[in-house]
Write a protein that binds this DNA or RNA. Structure first.
Lengths: 139, 139
DNA sequence: ATTCTAAATGGAAATAATTTCTATTTAGAG
DNA sequence: CTCTAAATAGAAATTATTTCCATTTAGAAT
């Protein structure tokens, strides 16, 4: 029972073979992926496997905190394993290898009021080159 | 020749009736809008008016700095008038009236290196309730 | 172990957003 | 006024995602 399975159970979701496999795929990938990416890999393991089911599972895994959404700003949805707890945090993405890491939120008091707005939410995401890629780890 | 028209000309784009009308729509709206929103309004002014043309124009207006993209994280594209110059900045969106305002970027030295990543880009967007809506301006 | 029920699933089809393509029109330089 | 590259309309294609419904299954209760 790993930390991800625990999150799934804790949310009252069933720990299905499909969900275990999807978590496994993300652990092995170590980067963000689209529903179609996941479906392609999952299809090798399960002969009968629909894309709608993958979409449903990715959403439920986001809901229970196992996955986080990653933005590529191209009108597609991307997901990555979320190691951080349920506390508010952000993500940094490697432009070379697509790896995603959790980063804590820097927001302080100054973010409660901006330009007369009462600020309720904010989204932050950084991208760049991770240490491994900078060393030529993959290129 | 207002500031928006100037930006269009400066980018080497033609100042067409369609583009003038789109800028005008955003000035009057004073909030972000989707391609379809713009198309609906534009259709009242021009009987022959295609959605693909609206998409093309919105993109070209972003390219020349007249419009900015706004994220609603729903896999649709949204646009708003961009008053700020070409310098790096962000946006804050009113959840009640959809108004968008430019905000300056707070990023300092600490944002150059995060978790070993060499940070190249970042995206920030805040949302909340604007002063007018807080006063019950529209609700 | 067996039963039971809500949740999960597959797959077809629908929906929604956006882009491509091609022929026609037009802004604006000369 | 002419000319050309840029802009346009509209149909059709593409892409991503969701809905629908009939079937299966995880896991709680027995």
């Amino acid at each position: 029972m790993n930390q991800y399975w625990e999150k799934i159970k804790k949310a009252g979701l069933k720990l299905t073979p499909r969900r275990k496999a999807i978590v496994d795929i993300f652990i092995k990938l170590n980067r963000y992926a689209s529903a179609e990416d996941v479906w392609e890999i999952l299809s090798k393991k399960f002969k009968r496997c629909g894309l709608p089911g993958v979409y449903r599972n990715l959403e439920s895994l986001v809901d229970c905190g196992v996955l986080a959404k990653v933005e590529k700003f191209d009108n597609k949805k991307y997901y990555a394993l979320c190691l951080a707890g349920s506390s508010h945090h952000h993500h940094i993405v490697c432009l070379n290898c697509d790896k995603v890491e959790d980063i804590s939120c820097y927001a302080g008091e100054s973010l409660k009021k901006i330009k007369g707005f009462k600020v309720l939410n904010h989204f932050f995401q950084a991208s760049g080159i991770c240490a491994a890629c900078a060393r030529g780890g993959k290129a």
